[in-house]
Simulated assay, not measured.
Amino acid sequence: MTTPKRTLKATHITMAHGAGGKAMRDLIEDVFVGSFDNSHLNALEDQARIDLAELQRDGNRIAFTTDGYVVDPIEFLGGNIGALAVNGTVNDLAVSGAIPKYLSCSMILEEGLEVAQLRRIVDSMRAAADAAGVAIVTGDTKVVPKGKGDKIFISTTGIGVIPEGIEISASRVKPGDKVIVNGWVGDHGAAILNARGDLALDVELHTDCQPLHELMQVMLKACPDLHAVRDASRGGVATVVNEFAETSGVAIRLYENAVPVRTEVRGVCEILGLDALYFANEGKLVAVVPAADADAVLAAMQAHPAGKEAAIIGEAYEGVAGRVVVQTGFGGERILDMLVGEQLPRIC
């Protein structure tokens, strides 16, 4: 790790740390450059300069995505807003079949934020980036007056490279395709809800925040013709399958008893009258694969740490275009519509 040229001595963020002067330079060089530490960022230019030849070695198309993170609280069991920002953006790239490469990071800090807490968040971002094989190569920092923000908001943008021949799209779902999820559903939503302390539950609920790029490569090796894949973050599995059905003009049926949901998460849902299928996830994807390849993809996923609890939870069929139904444990069916309103605000 590069030794920072400057040292941040302040214990809390002040307006001066966003003013463009010495205090801001101390913050950037010590906290951000000192942790993220790569040649692109260390140059301290106004932009990262990427070698096109390097990108072209891995594919013939660029995947480009951006996202913002305003989760409350900013630290919770199993992660924090920093790890969430990195993994969330990595996963948005990964589900296209792309190999994630570079991230940018924009931070809005509230005056009064503890520098020690900021360091923990930045260090977790570095650890998450290292685990995903990406570099945080450029960024921006702003500070807003106390009471005008909520500790820290993070925006990340990611660039990845899609290898030639991979065509993953919500428009490719066909009748007969199988729907697979890579594990327990609803962990992140339940963890954030519990971390807020409103339920006073005597149970530990951990976020499922994790990168999915390696799992995606395993899945593509088992079936290069994956039809559709998305990460089930805000709006959960229900939103993803509704998007697939609507875009492809097919109907999708999920099997309630096949959806993997932890007992603790079921308990939270029962208390609040909510549905785990709508709960946010930060380490779960929903894949639609040709029926002939479903068992091979499932086996490959279950052999990977990020897919040990993977399960086939449904299928596409010729029915009312755009309709999603859930076959209940009692043998009946209910319509699973798009999420209406805000079930759990500031979940990511």
Rank of each mutant, 00 (worst) to 15 (best):
A245V: 09
Q47T: 14
A16C: 01
A63C: 08
A228K: 01
I168Q: 10
D67Y: 08
Y278D: 03
A276D: 05
D30Q: 07
V268C: 11
A303N: 13
K221Q: 15
G332V: 11
T7R: 13
V144D: 01
V90H: 02
V240C: 04
R172E: 07
R61P: 03
L193G: 00
P163T: 09
M216K: 07
K178F: 04
D130Q: 13
G235T: 06
V261G: 04
D67C: 09
R61K: 15
L109I: 04
G341L: 08
G249L: 08
D67G: 05
G78L: 04
E264R: 06
L55M: 11
D295M: 07
D37K: 04
L205D: 01
L215G: 09
I152W: 07
N38T: 05
S155H: 13
L285S: 07
N42G: 07
A296K: 15
N182T: 10
A287M: 07
H40F: 13
V173P: 00
A310C: 13
A251K: 00
G78Y: 06
V297R: 13
L84W: 00
Q117K: 14
I335Q: 13
H304V: 11
I192K: 00
H40M: 11
P211H: 15
A135H: 03
A316M: 03
R196T: 05
E270K: 14
S169H: 11
R6I: 09
E204R: 08
H17M: 15
V90E: 03
S171D: 09
T7Y: 08
R172V: 00
G165V: 06
P260Y: 06
G165Q: 07
I13A: 03
N91H: 13
G79S: 12
I159F: 12
I313H: 11
R262H: 09
V320Q: 13
V33F: 10
V173L: 02
I312A: 10
I62D: 03
V297L: 15
E315D: 09
H188D: 07
K142V: 08
R230L: 13
G322Y: 08
G332T: 15
N182F: 13
V185I: 15
D72E: 13
S106R: 10
I313N: 06
E256G: 04
H213V: 09
G133K: 06
L344R: 03
L205H: 01
L201V: 02
I121G: 02
V31L: 03
Q210L: 10
K9P: 00
S124I: 00
E164I: 01
V70S: 12
V289Q: 02
E309I: 04
V286W: 06
L84V: 05
F153P: 00
L274Q: 12
L201Y: 00
L285F: 13
L215F: 08
H12E: 15
A19P: 02
A222Q: 14
P175M: 08
G149V: 08
K284H: 12
V229D: 09
G139Y: 08
T263C: 01
Y69K: 07
F32K: 00
D150Y: 12
L103Y: 02
I162A: 01
L113S: 06
A132N: 06
G133V: 06
A129E: 11
A228H: 02
A245F: 09
Y255R: 11
V261F: 04
I312G: 03
M219S: 14
A311R: 15
L113C: 04
K178W: 04
A228W: 03
D177Y: 05
A296G: 05
